[in-house]
Design a protein around this nucleic acid. Sequence first.
DNA 1: ATATAATGTAAGTACATACTTACAAAAAGT
DNA 2: ACTTTTTGTAAGTATGTACTTACATTATAT
Lengths: 198, 198
Amino acid sequence: MKEDTQQRLLEATLKLISEKGYPGATTREIAQEAGVTELTLFRHFGSKEKLFEEVLKSYTFLPALKEMIPELEELPCHEALIRIATKFILTLRKRKSMIKIMHTEIILYPDQIREVYTRFIEDQRSVLAQYFGRLQKKGIFRGISSDTAARMFLSILFSYYRNEELVSGQEITRNKMDKSIQEFVDIFLHGTLNAEQL
Amino acid sequence: MKEDTQQRLLEATLKLISEKGYPGATTREIAQEAGVTELTLFRHFGSKEKLFEEVLKSYTFLPALKEMIPELEELPCHEALIRIATKFILTLRKRKSMIKIMHTEIILYPDQIREVYTRFIEDQRSVLAQYFGRLQKKGIFRGISSDTAARMFLSILFSYYRNEELVSGQEITRNKMDKSIQEFVDIFLHGTLNAEQL
DNA sequence: ATATAATGTAAGTACATACTTACAAAAAGT
DNA sequence: ACTTTTTGTAAGTATGTACTTACATTATAT
């Protein structure tokens, strides 16, 4: 039962802080959301600060891309990239709360958040860079820096996702998303220049 | 003198909120930073909330790209894109405070911030998209959506800049930046595929 | 069945901070 | 020179919220 309440408190904290920001999420509300008393919160975590730090520490972004790469190895890279991009954006959406928090609360907890953020981005980038590296060995990709290419690819997707949050404020329809991803992948693979220019 | 103090208060607010966040920036400190009494702040703006709204309303991101495009019209597009990218990132750096605020305070002021953000991004994107459109007419660019291409190009740069803030926490050296931009532009123009694949 | 650990109730403390009020001194405008 | 506007000083109010304390109750374990 003890672990259970702690877990519920951690989840409630993540949810409320992502919605109202750290100062806006009161301990009373967090406790209420978790279905316990405010006092229970303090008994378990000592302070609001430690509670939030625990949220950051215990959070894990499961390996989104890593697990899907193997099955893509045989696909044409155009197909593979579309699937990777789609999966990546859907992951970002699922992890919406923590991503929001990473942007909003970095002032109060720069070190911890930087760690979570870096862990996530670098994980995805290194997996993708390795995949690109293999495409190079096969002669499919040209001899660019696979690291930079991976960074670029993910950057586009990340910004695309952030626009949902910052500009429109709601999820873009699956149809539009698919269309955008196709255009991204096309430009990423073929570039923007006309064939005669090469 | 009246406008002067108001201006100083607006600047102090921008600075302190970007450093400490909206709740962390106290009215006392803001007044102190502006060199006036707390009371003066309230006499001019009525409340902290209205003060911050005034900051958002009065802020303007000068047209960073618009003014430089004309002189690039004659350059090879590779050169031009490098200059555009460099200028864009330097602009982001100069506007650091407001960009930070747009990310951190969107929970409290979603509508106003969305407006500032959209205004900025859409301005830059449309200018760049027009430039890309002209490159298409000249037959230099292929027939992709110049809008999507512009969005992609700026996305990469925006994410690159955000990494300075979120990952490293400090500006990347000019040398590294130039190198990264060259790689970005190269991939953006030529794509990632090997020539034999086309 | 009983001891121990986990949670609840209720009341309250301490503290920060946005905002106010009353009066006085400069600054600026005419 | 005189009026009006702007700023300062100083004290205080009101409110919210993190956190505490003392005691009662329920669940868990052995």
